[in-house]
Structures are given as C-alpha cells and as structure tokens.
Design a protein around this nucleic acid. Structure first.
Lengths: 350, 350
DNA sequence: CTTTAGCACTCTCGCACGAAGAGTGCTAAA
DNA sequence: TTTAGCACTCTTCGTGCGAGAGTGCTAAAG
C-alpha cells in the first residue's frame, strides 16, 4: 500500500524534527515549527494512520510520535533530499586529505579522525583486503654488522620489508645472487600461489647463496608468510568514540559502554561491514543490523576505491536518529576523495 | 609531622576499602570488614586527625571519609604493598607479547589492547622518539613501469621506504649510481645533520644519475624530510576507552565525555607524559596532573626500553581511586617485557 | 592519658504525592 | 474532509518526609 503524498510529507517532517531535537514530536509542533497548513487534529489523524502502518511509534500513550526503523528506511530510500555540501566543507575535506602523508596507515588514521570530527559521529575505517596481490620486485641487502634486509614490492606498489638476522650472515654477493633468483622465480605469480614448489625452484637456482641448509631462503619464505597474513588482514581503525556520549539516547551509561565495547572488537567490526554493495552509500538502520548490540544503532557506510581492485570502507555509527540526509552526501564525497588520495592521485583539489 | 603507625594503618585501610568499593568509608566499616581491634569511636578520632592533616576528605558532614590526593600520594609512596603477579598473569602477559609480529606498529597496538584488558583501565602507549638516528644504508631500485623505490635503513635497524614517481623515470643504472653516491655521503652523520651541503655533495658525486635538474636527488631529499618528521613524531595509541564508563565516578556522562575527548587528543597525550623519570613506575594522582581535565583522574605510567637509547611509555588512566598496588607490579612487569619484545629479543618466555 | 559507650545531630537517598504540561483520541460541527 | 473542543492519559518535576549511615562530643571506664 502506497502512502499518500500528504502522509509522506508528514512522515518526513516528523523524522526531520526528531533527528534535530531527539524528542517525540507531536501534532502541534508540526503545525508550528514546520509550515503545515493543516490543523493539529488532521495531523493527528494522519499520524495515527502512519503509526498503524508501522512507520511511527509511540513511546507511551500521551507522548508524541517517534520514527520507527521502518520509517527511517522509507526516509532514506525515498523521502530525504541529500544535503548539499557547503563550499567550506568541500574545502576542508580536500584539505584534510591533502597532507602529503607517505605512510598509508597514518593517512587512514587521520582520515578517520577527520571523518569523525566532520560528522560528529563515531567513525571507522576498514582497510581493503589485498589478497590478490603479485610481487613485482625483490631486493635484499646487508644493513649493519649483524643483519640483512629483505624488501619486496607488490603490484599495488606497496613496499614491505623485514630485518633478518641469521647465523651466519650472508655476504653482499650471496644476497645479490639470491635477489636475482627470487626475482626470476617469484615475480609473476600471485603471492597466494607461491608455495613449496616455487620456493624450492628458487632455492635451487640460488645455489649456495640460499645459505647453509637454505637459511637465507627460509627467512625469505617466512617473510612471505608474514606478508600474506598482513595483506589478508583488514585493519579496523576506530575514532571519535567520545561522540557517542554526546547523544541523548546514550544517557544510559551501560548502553554506551556496551556499544563501545562492541565497536572495539575488531572481528565484529569486520563482520559488521560484510554485505558489500555497489551503492555509493549504505544505510543500516537499527534492527537491520545483524548484531544484536546494534539494534538501536545505525551505521552509514561508503566504499572507497584504490586503483581498480581494492576497496575499503568508511563508516559512521550513531543512534538510529542520525542525520541521514546530511551524512549521505558527506560520506559519498569523502569516500570518493579518500580513494583518490590513497590511489596516490596528486590532483586532489580542484 | 610524621604519622603514627596506627594512623598509617587506618589510612591504608580506608584507602584500600575505598579503592574496592568506591564508597565513603565510615568508622564502623573499618572495625567490621578490616580486622581493626579498636572501637569505632577511636577510629573516628584518628580519622578526624587524618582529615585535619589533609589525608582524608569528607564529601559532606555525615558521610564516611574518602582519601584525598595527598592521601593517595602517601599510599603509593609508603603504605602500599605491591600485589604479586599470579603465575597465570605472568603467563598471559608473556603469551600476549610472544606473537611473532613483524610490524612494530601492530605489536604496540596489540600490546596496548592487552594492557587495557589486563588492568581493566583505559591504556595508552607513547612510542619512543628516535630523532638521534643515523642512516646506515640506502638502496634504490625500479619497481614496475612507472615508479622507483627508495629504501633506507637506520642504525636502529628500522627500514623506511618511499615509492617515487618522476618524469622521466631513472634507469636501473642511474639508480645504482645514485645509491652508491648516497651511501658514500649520507651514511655516517646524524640524520638531523644532513642538510643542503651534504645533499649537494652527494648530488655532484652522482653526476647525471641525480636526474635532469637533480629530480631523483630531490625526491630522495624530500623523503629524508618525511623520515625525519616521522621519527620525531611520537605516536600515541589509545585503547580500552570503554573501561572509563565502568567506574562509578564517571556516571556523569559529561565528565566521561570530556575525559575521552581529552585523551583522544594526541598532542595532549604527548604532553601528559612529559616529565620522564627513572622510576620504574610513575603515579600521577588527580590534581598533580598539569592538565585541568585530569584533575580527578590518575595516570600510572611505566617506561619501556628498546635497546640502549630508545624509551617509550605505557600508561593507564582511571579515576583517582585506582588500584595502585595492583597496577604497580603489573605495569612494571609488562613494560619490561614489552621492551624486550620490541628489542627483538627472542627468548621472551622463561 | 587513652579508649570506649552513648547520644544528639546532620546530611543524603529514596519514595510517595500532587500539580503542571504535553499530547492523544473521540465527537460533533463546519 | 477538516477542524474545534474536551476529557483523558501519561510523564516530569518539585516537595516533603522518613530511614539510614556516620559524625562529633561528652562522660565514664580502663
């Protein structure tokens, strides 16, 4: 059953008022604060209809109405008009990402912090999973009197390194030979496909440069395992936890605490963002969340893309009464910009 | 004026009871719960003496007594007996640090998380400042069709890298020559001392391998700046914020929020830990904190040492009513172990 | 001189009560 | 179909009061 245009208008007004004031909204408020040309009585009728259909709820008999999750869902799907970003916002977003930050981790951290302060909600980032990676270059060399360094570069142009200490230490010459052998055999296939066989081949090729009993080579193999693990892992960065306490729905400490605890569980956060989708911005409203701890919490997420294949996720978490209209546009824009920044795109401001 | 042994005993009992129960402790409680062989009246006399001397406070006329910051100070300095760690605790601490984690950042993060769950307080880590570093090795090589990689190793055997894109791209031969020149001129002096002059020398030495108008060399110089900045910066990792909400003194949301906000300010956190000291564990109690936001919060810190020169800091934050006796031993032990783990010491369990 | 028992006093906390206020649903009129 | 009026419901907030806990003081006991 489709809602009448008037019902929609009223629903929207209720939701937007509630988002703003966090208090049940009554019929009188609507006629006064929002320019409704109807009497309170009419509004009451419509509202009770909306309640019967499940879009509104009443905390108790003689209070105003509050949007239900179903109401919010309709709102984000059909009713809301996305807030345009102000020029100032566009500028600060761009500026925040403009830092010539080399380290990826740090850029992600700062971006997440910025997102939180921009939206005034708790924000998080889920880094891309990069398991389909290929290695494009090995380089091994001595460093100091007791160690050598293994460096590999991936096709996404991430550089990984390890400081290794073996006994005995390889000579510079050993390392040159080993480097050559590694580049011959392990460059090309997916990292995931580098197994016993390829390693054996490389080792044989390197000959004595693989070290006594192959120790040097073994160190490299170990390193590859570590890289694999590190790349598989999707890091979660969470910031702005204090914003949670700013919302009246978390006046109850216990509730706030439970939420914070949930959010700081990395595994849960990864799961939270599972159902990837192609929509630029995704809303998960209250009980739509799989996790019970989030049943009166909403999550707004947007994907960012690094290059062709990698995609990560940014999100903000807050009470179901979130400013969806404002978030939609800001998250979309921010995600897009973050992706560019992480892709190493120099021309980030325009 | 020195306190009588009996006063000390009473003060200690009051503090320990208050730490446990978070409620003003009265004379009766003491005779009952703690085995005091004195009547409540006597205790009352002593307590009013302790109050006059500033070791105890009364929230209001007819409530029990609460330790004052001065009382806590005496407690940590003289009165408390450090809790011994249980064998189980020793084991879990060692196990938590035993992970063969390559990346330093990640080990620090996980250690901080662990510290928080061990102590049930909000925990943080301040990484060492490493500004007195020397470079011991440069290595430059091509990576892919459009980029080259600059790798440097510091004398603390940290490896830093940068992916650089220049137009035109250097040849492998250029890079070899440039690498050699860099190793000749920039290895040896403190990173901090590498300025215009040395760079110019290296550039001249590299000749055409420094790139047209010295672009390749300029990229390296830029990279060195970045490294300098990264090494100067002391990272702050904060975890377990939800624990703050577990203490009754933060039933007031606004207070909790302000504290959380303060703690998430990296600059403040760095400042917080400024007055380094040689004591294994340091207590900063309530108003002893410079920052006003922490005036009813205590901080317990311990330094960890990586190798000879680097020292970082771990800390926990909570209400002034913290379990100092328990923390003292745990923090000391944990810091010592963390230092070892970060120094790359393999034999971490014994 | 120190310790203890007794007692009056003070202050907080929790609870019940009632008035005020906001909002509703229903009915009847426009 | 819309609106005005009205009785009703439910929360919120302020007030007052009793219970409970703890104190300080005084005077007696050790």
């Amino acid at each position: 059953m489709e809602l009448s245009p008037r019902k929609k208008k009223i629903l929207r007004a209720v939701i937007e008022d509630y988002i703003l004031n966090a208090e049940p909204v009554g019929s009188k408020m609507l006629t006064e604060r929002r320019g409704m040309n109807l009497s309170p009585a009419t509004i009451r009728n419509e509202m009770s209809g909306l309640e019967a259909m499940g879009y509104l709820e009443q905390p108790h008999t003689s209070a105003g109405r509050v949007p239900s999750p179903k109401g919010y869902r309709l709102y984000v799907d059909e009713l809301m008009e996305e807030h345009r970003l102000t020029l100032a916002e566009v500028r600060t977003i761009n500026a925040s990402l403009h830092l010539r930050i080399q380290e990826l981790d740090r850029l992600v951290l700062e971006a997440t912090q910025f997102l939180s302060s921009l939206t005034q909600y708790t924000a998080y980032t889920l880094t891309p999973s990069t398991s389909d990676v290929r290695l494009i270059r090995f380089e091994l060399f001595l460093a100091g009197a007791d160690a050598f360094v293994v460096v590999v570069v991936t096709d996404a142009q991430a550089v990984k390194n390890k400081v290794a200490r073996t006994n005995p230490l390889p000579t510079e010459e050993d390392l040159q030979r080993l480097t050559a052998a590694l580049n011959r055999h392990l460059v090309g296939p997916l990292l995931r496909e580098i197994g016993e066989e390829l390693l054996k081949k490389a080792r044989r090729d390197a000959g004595p440069a693989a070290g006594p009993a192959g120790v040097y080579m073994a160190t490299v193999a170990e390193f590859l395992d570590e890289i694999r693990e590190a790349l598989d892992r999707r890091d979660v960065v969470l910031t702005g936890q204090s914003h949670i306490l700013g919302h009246p729905e978390y006046r109850d400490i216990l509730k706030a605490r439970r939420l914070l605890e949930y959010l700081s569980d990395r595994r849960e956060m990864t799961r939270l963002s599972m159902p990837e989708s192609s929509a630029p911005v995704r809303f998960v409203i209250g009980p739509e969340n799989v996790a019970e701890q989030l049943h009166d919490t909403s999550v707004v997420m947007a994907s960012y893309h690094i290059g062709e294949n990698l995609h990560g996720l940014i999100g903000v978490v807050g009470p179901t009464r979130m400013d969806y209209a404002k978030l939609a546009s800001r998250m979309a824009y921010f995600a897009e910009r973050l992706g560019r920044a992480l892709s190493g795109d120099k021309d980030i401001d325009e």
